[in-house]
Simulated assay, not measured.
Amino acid sequence: MISPACRARWPRAFVLSLCLLAPVKVRAQPVAPQSSPAVQALYDQANDEMDAMRYESACPRLEEVVRLAPDALGAKLTLGACYEGWGKLASAWSQYVLVEGEATKVGDLDRQMKAAIKAAALKPKLATLTIDVPASVRSIPGLTITRDGLSVRDAQWSVPLPLDVGRHEIVVSGRGYKTRKQQIEIAADGDRVAVRVSPLESMSNAESAPVRPWQRPAAIVAMGLGGAGLAAGAVLGGLAIARNQESNDSHCSSPERCDPAGRELRRQAVGLGNGSTAALVAGGLLTAGGVALFLTAPSHAQRDERARTRAVPWRAEIALLPGGVAVQGGW
């Protein structure tokens, strides 16, 4: 066992060479001095599953341990070992690099050296994915690129980034442009995969407008209410004319001279006339609005055609290179 004081005086490369001669044990340690019994039990269960090589269940448990005990470097180091056993080398490498940095800050030299050794051993084996974004795409307003739901910002473009073996989804979108999704397959450790994003297809005004399935039903309701309003206006108008005619026939000798009954009939005629006018105006507006909604609503065929035009083929080229495989693709 090398004392911390001695190690502090020796060159880093020499200490690394000594550590490489001994096995690195990163599991079967307490989570943290003050960890709760529940967290410790979860950690112990994960260790048992790792011993049984059930990494697919052990790693999520360790992720939960790290979430509950974020300062537990031992748990983070064990999580890296779990990812490595599971075959997720990029995730393991990222975890080891993280532990190395955090252990350096707190002066935990044992875990710092263990994490550094493991990260250095994995780095040459990592598969990478490079996303190239040409200038024509970078100028798209509101451009957003994600990989497996994580944002890929411009600082990451054209940079080979370590990635686990398996299937990954890339999504590219922008304001006023059709969103594209593509599944990328990394077949083996050490693969070098490159994807070039081609210009997105612009939406037409009709395509960019939101689909409104309520539009036709609302149009039918509006036209029905409008028709009812027009009918009510016609009835009220007829009653107004009848009241006015009755006053002229029996109760008024001239437009200005009427008995009390005639004046009441004239008053009723004016009220019915005003109601008729209001009903006719409202009914006309509702009817016109309903007709406009109905005529502008997209048909089922138009919506189906819009969905079909959004499917854009993706192309890829594969080339054998010294030390790996290169995949060049784009939309």
Rank of each mutant, 00 (worst) to 15 (best):
Met1Tyr: 15
Ile2Leu: 15
Pro4Arg: 09
Cys6Gly: 12
Cys6Ala: 13
Arg7Leu: 07
Phe14Trp: 15
Val15Glu: 12
Ser17Tyr: 07
Leu18Asn: 11
Leu18Gln: 14
Leu20His: 07
Leu21His: 03
Ala22Pro: 03
Lys25Leu: 11
Arg27Tyr: 08
Ala28His: 13
Gln29Ala: 06
Ala32Thr: 03
Pro33Ile: 06
Leu42Phe: 05
Ala46Gly: 05
Ala46Gln: 06
Ala46Ser: 05
Glu56Ser: 08
Glu56His: 12
Cys59Lys: 10
Cys59Asp: 11
Pro60Lys: 12
Pro60Phe: 03
Arg61Pro: 00
Arg61Gln: 12
Arg61Ser: 09
Leu62Ser: 10
Glu63Ile: 00
Glu64Ser: 13
Val65Ala: 12
Asp71Gln: 06
Gly74Cys: 04
Leu77Gln: 08
Leu79Trp: 07
Ala81Asp: 09
Glu84Leu: 02
Glu84Cys: 01
Gly85Pro: 05
Ser91Thr: 06
Ala92Leu: 06
Tyr96Ala: 03
Val99Lys: 04
Gly101Tyr: 05
Glu102Ser: 10
Glu102Gly: 07
Gly107Val: 08
Asp108Gly: 15
Asp110Met: 03
Asp110Tyr: 08
Gln112Met: 01
Ala115Asn: 11
Ala115Trp: 08
Ala115Ile: 04
Ile117Phe: 12
Ala119Phe: 02
Ala121Glu: 08
Ala121Ile: 09
Ala127Pro: 04
Thr130Gln: 02
Thr130Asn: 00
Ile131Asp: 00
Ser136Glu: 15
Ser139His: 04
Ile140Arg: 00
Gly142Asp: 02
Asp148Val: 00
Ser151Met: 01
Ala155Cys: 05
Leu161Glu: 05
Leu161Cys: 03
Leu163Thr: 01
Val165Ser: 09
Gly166Asn: 06
Arg167Ala: 00
Arg167Pro: 03
Glu169Thr: 06
Ile170Trp: 00
Val172Arg: 00
Gly176Cys: 05
Lys178Gly: 08
Arg180Asp: 00
Lys181Gly: 10
Gln183Lys: 01
Ile184Cys: 14
Glu185Asp: 14
Asp189Ala: 14
Val193Cys: 03
Ser204Trp: 01
Glu207Met: 11
Glu207Pro: 08
Ser208Leu: 07
Ser208Met: 09
Ala209Gln: 14
Arg212Lys: 15
Arg212Ser: 06
Gln215Ser: 10
Val221Ser: 11
Met223Pro: 12
Gly224Thr: 09
Ala231His: 07
Val235Tyr: 12
Leu236Glu: 15
Gln245Pro: 10
Glu246Asn: 06
Ser247Cys: 12
Asp249Cys: 07
Ser250Ala: 15
Ser250Asp: 07
His251Asp: 14
Cys252Thr: 10
Ser253Gln: 05
Ser253Arg: 03
Ser254Phe: 11
Cys258Asn: 07
Glu264Ala: 13
Arg266Met: 14
Arg267His: 13
Arg267Thr: 10
Gln268Leu: 13
Gly273His: 12
Asn274Asp: 15
Ala279Asn: 14
Leu280Asp: 02
Leu285Glu: 01
Gly289His: 02
Gly290Trp: 04
Leu295His: 13
Ser299Trp: 07
Ser299Met: 10
Ala301Gln: 11
Gln302Cys: 09
Arg303Val: 14
Val312Glu: 02
Ala316Glu: 15
Glu317Val: 06
Ala319Ile: 08
Leu320Ser: 15
Pro322Tyr: 09
Ala326Leu: 14
Trp331Gln: 04
